[in-house]
Design a protein around this nucleic acid. Structure first.
Length: 494
RNA sequence: GGUCCCAUCGUCUAGCGGUUAGGACAUCGGCCUCUCACGCCGAGAACCUGGGUUCAAAUCCCGGUGGGAUCACCA
């Protein structure tokens, strides 16, 4: 740690795609660590890959982080501090001097190899069963050789001259780590397009930004060795490292596109609530004690510790995410639920804007318990909208069963009875039909449900009846009656 | 292939020498109930393997096996 004891953690995404849940977890872990220790959380954009970087991705990543509730004290939108700018593309000047220093001290050299040559070398090494790393072809070029290549106009990159030795450090999650420098080839610090490479830029940025703790995925474990060499070469005190295991897919390989949805954005679109996502991400691979599965961010911040993070990789369990989501959906009050569900309904083409707010809230209140993801809402809500009313195949066959007709006839009679109220007619109608048919339980309710909702499953009938008006139910009953009377060709499958 | 990491129910995990190996999700069964869901109750389900160390090993050590990561002018 630096002389000042302040904890400074960072998340450093590269805007080459939407926020991956694995990266989101890394971000969250850093954020939790910083918040728990009352330190700073920094967001730094690593946009040195000129071809793959895009502004859209950067915007999306920042937006998704905010959506998750992961906020930052310093970052691209909050420049101006002593540590900025926070976009590597805006720090090119900063890196220049350090490269010169390495070069002057003979710790970096020009490499004129072309991509084809490097690729060929790699393939050869690999086919001979050797480690596919740079052999050092340009390491000891003579002045004349260099001049000749320069005169040819060959582009060059800078490589760090790796020296033999042992690199050791203590990982906060994994304990003592040891690497042999020989296993690491001379790596690129400055690309031929004059843009610094990752291992070089991170070291300088983390040092300059006074990052005290680097928490990241274990896919960076071997990079740490290279970075530590740079820290040593510059005489920078290195930060504390902590490498967590990766988020895995069902086949236990690193979670990737082929596993299905992998970005925060995708889950967001499917109606996963931020509370559920953050809860899931924070608890995945960790444990906060028996029965403690549903936790708020504040609770987690309070009890967060790297010690709670397991060393093994954790499979991203969507079913558990869904369960958490149902828990948080049920906690939502009707007003909030309505605000976030309406966009999902509209997206699916259900017009609810024209309906009174109370009506929409009543519908969502009825349907709330049946939602796993918000994207389930349209299916659940459809039954309340005449223009989307359909009768399912199962409902059709039930309506055609012998007993249904008498119930439906009685129901029709009840709804047209002079004493039937316009609204709140559920009790009246049920009493009426029960009295008329002498039926009760399933035999009584199922045909009514099938007629009124077109389905065999759904919200409680009294709630359905409280929302639908008498005319609408009457129409549906008429339709049901027609289905009951039909042979099976006309309404074969609705 | 080199290097590094990891290893308890299907999944996420608790366990830190002596436990009927606990919890959660999922699954299955029951109750509740007009249905589904919810809720409640219950069930099945795990210590990768072989050696040690020890009175005693899921726990400590070593070997094996298995899985993963990484070896880019990507981060």
């Amino acid at each position: 740690m630096k002389n000042n004891e302040r904890v400074r953690a960072r998340f450093a995404p590269s805007p080459t795609g939407d926020l991956h849940v694995g990266n989101a977890r890394t971000a969250l872990l850093n954020w939790l660590f910083a918040r728990h220790h009352g330190g700073d959380f920094i967001l730094r954009v690593e946009d040195t890959d000129r071809v793959r970087t895009s502004d859209l991705y950067e915007r999306n990543i920042l937006e998704d982080l905010m959506w998750l509730g992961v906020d930052w004290d310093e970052g691209p939108e909050k420049d101006g501090g002593p540590y900025g700018p926070y976009r590597q593309s805006e720090r090119l000047e900063v890196y220049r001097g350090y490269l010169e220093r390495l070069s002057a001290e003979g710790r970096a050299y020009r490499c004129y190899c072309t991509e084809e040559e490097l690729e060929k070398e790699r393939a050869e090494l690999l086919s001979r069963g050797k480690a596919p790393r740079y052999g050092g072809r340009c390491r000891n070029l003579t002045a004349e050789q260099r001049k000749k290549l320069d005169d040819e106009g060959r582009a060059y990159a800078y490589r760090f001259k790796v020296e033999e030795g042992l690199i050791e450090f203590t990982d906060l999650i994994r304990g003592p780590m040891k690497f042999n420098a020989e296993d690491i080839g001379d790596f690129i610090v400055l690309r031929s397009n004059a843009v610094p490479a990752y291992n070089f830029a991170v070291v300088i940025d983390d040092y300059l930004m006074e990052v005290s703790h680097v928490i990241r995925g274990e896919d960076h474990l071997s990079n740490t060795a290279a970075q530590l060499m740079l820290y040593a070469a510059f005489g920078f005190p290195p930060p504390v490292f902590a490498h967590h295991a990766l988020v895995l897919g069902k086949d236990r390989a690193k979670l990737s596109k082929r596993h299905g949805s992998v970005t925060v954005r995708e889950f967001r679109r499917q109606g996963i609530l931020p509370e559920a996502m953050v809860n899931h991400l924070a608890l995945m691979g960790s444990s906060y004690g028996e029965g403690r599965e549903v936790m708020t961010l504040e609770e987690i911040v309070k009890e967060f510790s790297l010690d709670r993070i397991g060393k093994g990789g954790a499979v991203f369990d969507e079913e558990k995410l869904d369960w958490l989501n149902t828990v948080y959906i049920r906690k939502l009050d009707l007003e909030d639920l309505t605000a976030i569900v309406v966009p999902f309904l509209e997206e699916a083409g259900l017009d609810v804007r024209s309906r009174p707010k109370e009506w929409v809230e009543a519908v969502l209140g009825a349907v709330k318990g049946n939602l796993k993801r918000l994207s389930d809402a349209p299916y659940q809500v459809e039954i309340f909208l005449d223009e989307h009313f359909k009768v399912s195949a199962e409902a059709v066959s039930l309506l055609r069963e012998g007993g249904s007709r008498t119930v439906l006839a009685a129901l029709q009679e009840a709804l047209t009875d002079g004493n039937c109220p316009e609204r709140g007619f559920y009790a009246f109608v049920i009493d009426f039909v029960r009295g008329r048919t002498g039926l009760k339980g399933k035999a009584l309710f199922t045909p009514i449900r099938a007629a009124a909702t077109g389905r065999l499953e759904g919200p409680e009938l009294n709630r359905v009846f409280d929302i639908l008006d008498r005319e609408a139910v009457l129409k549906r009953v008429a339709k049901a009656l027609a289905i009951a009377a039909s042979s099976g060709t006309k309404y074969g499958c609705a």
